[in-house]
Design a protein around this nucleic acid. Structure first.
Lengths: 132, 132
DNA sequence: CAAGATTGTCAACGTGCTTTCCTATTTTGT
DNA sequence: ACAAAATAGGAAAGCACGTTGACAATCTTG
């Protein structure tokens, strides 16, 4: 699904969009999000999150600003272009979901989501990383 | 799930087992399977399949023999050690499934599988590769 | 206020894939 | 029968995305 999303977002003119971007964009809130928090939400290391962030920043969809409350921290937030691409991504996602709904039926899709959510919540609650 | 499997298979003494191996091992039938067929089943390029095959062969779980019916082709098949590890993998998989069953209930797991299978069958029937 | 913890990053490397190019064999059309 | 085309497999290079280890800067504590 993620790959399909990336393909279609690219097809809409965002040539350099990578599958890994969806996770980043989706986990940054409107007021911006710190790198560590983002990494946690994505279930990857801070370093990995930082790398994606840099790539996306280079394309102009995000910017990194120092956290006023913590000199160590950096806050990533959407640029206008980023909000634009986010809207596109949401459209694309809804489109894909509606295709799934055609295949599974409205109830089927709902049940699938519920089952997967339940599983994801119980299993490996925050990824296998912080076990360290 | 795949990562969990690999972790547990490693924990059972197969130190060098990689997550990508599950797909390979699972798609090779008892009489052996040609590289191209395997690639198709795995949904990757022949080259990728060939690479995994070489890694697994180096560890002694598979062997590659020339196809007697086609001088171009190569057949990959399990070695005794390969059948051994395959049994382990199946045990591990059943273990994981039973954990899922605890979370979702027996009916829940069955429904989940059915929904996912239905989706997988309709979507991208043989991977986005052979569209080329 | 020194000792320790936390935040982010750089650098190096691992895994799993793709693409491009190539050889060896088989199949086909005439 | 045989050249032309198709097919099977693989080597090499590169890419996407992650990891780990080491580090400087800043914050928090005893």
């Amino acid at each position: 699904m993620n790959r399909t999303m990336a393909d279609r977002i690219r097809a809409r003119g965002y040539d350099d969009f990578q599958p890994s971007f969806t996770g980043v964009l989706a986990h940054i809130d409107t007021e911006g999000t710190r790198v560590g928090t983002l990494a946690q939400r994505m279930g990857v290391s801070r370093q990995a999150a930082s790398q994606r962030l840099q790539e996306i920043e280079a394309l102009g969809y995000l910017e990194r600003v120092p956290d006023p409350n913590d000199g160590r921290a950096v806050i990533a937030r959407h640029t206008p272009a980023g909000r634009q691409i986010l809207l596109t991504a949401i459209e694309v996602m809804l489109g894909i979901e509606s295709e799934y709904e055609t295949i599974l039926g409205s109830d089927g899709l709902k049940r699938l989501k519920r089952l997967l959510t339940r599983l994801a919540d119980k299993i490996d609650p925050s990824g296998a990383l912080e076990s360290k």
